[in-house]
């Protein structure tokens, strides 16, 4: 069974995004970039499936600038077998990403696609669902557990107020939620080994996919700042202030 894992290069999880003074976007110059945390969880799950003997090959795919090859090397160091970079300097919307992935999937024919539920830059939470729709494959989003057997995947999903379990016929799309697993750190020997693994690069234009943006970004602004408050002396003081000053008790 072949598993395909799309991964995205985004601002590092621990870095605070800063808005550019000209309101054209978020300043990413000289900012630490990393693999999107939910994509890391997806890579980990795919690698675990291969280690269990369920999957035979794990292919990582990224769409982005030349530097996204670093993100793919991370996926290879975590245990993916090979990688594909669809190179572009455009910032693609989820619908365009889904169309590009559909094109790659048409050629790679994976049995299962595992991907992050959301990228922490655009915060759309849409690409996986869109890809499933375009492929007419079943979807199981926000997964906290995946069991694959007999051409089906049984997926436990995080829903508001609890857990839902679905069974999907493969090929299918699963999107990873936070509690699916805890991704490993790539060891130094594995980082070295990853340098020798295959990383194919192709230009986005060569795929012939319509990736024209549908949304025009008018401006990007800072959210209104919360004015800092006061320190209270003790619990009794706090309750008094909440009652009389804030009026919330």
């Amino acid at each position: 069974m072949k598993v395909l894992v799309p991964v995205k290069r985004v601002i590092d999880y621990n870095v605070k995004a800063r808005v550019k003074p000209d309101q054209s976007g978020v300043d990413l110059a000289n900012v630490k970039m990393s693999m999107n945390p939910f994509c890391e969880i997806a890579v980990e799950e795919a690698v675990r499936l291969r280690e269990k003997g369920v999957a035979t090959e794990v292919v990582a795919v990224s769409i982005g600038p030349a530097q996204a090859s670093e993100t793919l090397r991370t996926a290879l160091a975590m245990g993916a077998d090979r990688a594909i970079l669809v190179q572009t300097t455009e910032d693609l919307e989820p619908l365009a990403v889904a169309k590009v992935l559909k094109s790659i999937i048409g050629r790679e024919s994976p049995d299962l696609v595992i991907m992050g539920k959301q990228a922490i830059d655009g915060d759309n939470n849409a690409t996986g669902q869109m890809l499933a729709t375009l492929l007419d494959w079943p979807q199981a989003t926000f997964a906290s557990a995946i069991e694959v057997s007999g051409g089906k995947a049984k997926v436990t999903r995080e829903v508001d107020g609890g857990l839902q379990t679905l069974e999907i016929d493969l090929p299918g799309i699963v999107t990873a939620d936070l509690r699916l697993n805890e991704p490993r750190y790539a060891s130094l020997p594995n980082i070295m080994k990853a340098k020798k693994k295959e990383l194919a690069i192709e230009e986005l234009a060569s795929l012939g996919v319509d990736t024209a943006p549908r949304l025009k970004v008018v401006k990007v602004t800072e959210p209104p700042k919360r004015a800092g408050g006061i320190k209270v002396e003790n619990a009794a003081d706090l309750v008094a202030k909440l009652k009389t000053e804030a009026g919330v008790l």
Partner: peptide
């Protein structure tokens, strides 16, 4: 909101 609410994006749909 984008970037975990650290920025607000105004978008126009065509």
């Amino acid at each position: 909101p984008i970037y975990a609410g650290n920025a607000l994006e105004t978008v126009q749909s065509s």
